[in-house]
């Protein structure tokens, strides 16, 4: 297991290097001089950046300097916010996105497992039809529509009650997080529900569940110890990539609900063409996702003995 984790970490670092390289060359192929076409660059920042990234140097030298800075965890200075470190920006805004993301993932995973199991147990009966209809809706309606509609219903609800039950936008308390996290996790929950359902159906028809029945075990025990435990495995394997979907999907929710997260900041940076912020955030997100996938895979190893012991 230790060797496995080490191997995965090395792979992860190589992947992050690839992401950083792709980001670097993508940004450097943007037409025009990044410093010239932006109005907000003050001479001070310009000097800083030129020194730091050697913008007058050949591309490869710049690349080496960039990688060197990255390996020290230094993402550079914002183009548009004078002398502000990208690291500071990330430190300030990422926790907000992370909390939102974690809540959304929890919501999606718990909901997905619960609804998926239910639909499989009530296959082709009313609860199955109702939940699967909602799931199809959850998959088919774009997240910004869901976000807008839920905000609209919040406004209506608050108006109807005459006081602010749940805040419509902003950030701060757990109440602020609830609805955005649900909106953010919704499509993933729908996806996981489908996955859990089909995986559960497969398990229900499996030989070892038949064995468990032939042993005369009570249905509750069969459900928890034989069915859920095996059916949940495919759900866990996709959880890593799904965390990626959720964190980047956070843009929309952060914009609609006016949440000061990194996603919203990234969109603003893109609109202002703040090169270092765009690059820094992309590499940071990329690294975060790569390691989340590793964490999930290692976690998976602890649940599935076939992986753990190999």
């Amino acid at each position: 297991m230790g060797w496995y984790i080490f191997k995965r970490l090395i792979q992860g670092i190589i992947t992050v290097w690839f992401i950083a390289t792709a980001t670097f060359f993508a940004m450097h192929s943007v037409p025009g001089d990044p410093l010239l076409n932006d109005r907000a660059v003050t001479p001070a920042i310009r000097a800083n950046l030129e020194a730091k990234y050697g913008l007058d140097q050949p591309l490869l030298t710049q690349y080496v300097i960039y990688l060197g800075n990255l390996s020290r965890g230094d993402f550079g200075i914002s183009f548009t916010q004078e002398n502000r470190q990208v690291n500071d920006i990330i430190r300030e805004h990422f926790p907000v996105s992370a909390i939102l993301g974690i809540l959304a993932v929890l919501f999606a995973a718990l909901g997905g497992v619960l609804w998926g199991s239910l639909t499989a147990l009530y296959r082709n009966r009313l609860p199955d039809y109702i939940i699967m209809f909602l799931v199809i809706l959850g998959i088919s309606v774009p997240s910004f529509v869901v976000a807008a509609l839920s905000q609209y219903s919040l406004v209506t609800l608050n108006n109807a009650v005459g006081q602010t039950l749940l805040p419509v936008a902003g950030w701060g308390t757990i109440l602020h997080m609830l609805v955005p996290a649900m909106v953010l996790g919704l499509s993933t929950m729908a996806y996981l529900t489908r996955l859990m359902r089909s995986s559960m159906l497969e398990v229900i028809n499996s030989d070892f569940v038949r064995t468990a029945k032939s042993k005369g075990l009570p249905p509750a025990r069969i459900f928890t110890r034989h069915q859920v435990r095996n059916a949940i495995l495919p759900v866990i394997t996709v959880l890593g990539p799904q965390i990626a979907v959720i964190t980047t999907g956070g843009f929309v929710v952060e914009i609609v609900f006016a949440i000061p997260g990194l996603g919203r900041f990234f969109v603003e940076a893109v609109q202002q063409l703040d090169y270092t912020v765009i690059m820094g955030t992309t590499v940071f997100y990329g690294a975060f996702l790569v390691f989340m996938v590793i964490v999930v895979d290692v976690l998976y190893g602890f649940i599935d003995p076939r992986v753990r012991l190999k």
Partner: peptide, 27 residues
């Protein structure tokens, strides 16, 4: 009680053999 054709798939892959044998005794 019953045993089946394919022992490879007839046992729960995520439980130890001992636990699976112990189950009916517990129940």
């Amino acid at each position: 009680s019953m045993i089946f054709q394919d022992p490879m798939t007839s046992l729960n892959p995520t439980m130890t053999i001992g636990d699976q044998i112990a189950e009916p005794l517990q129940v």
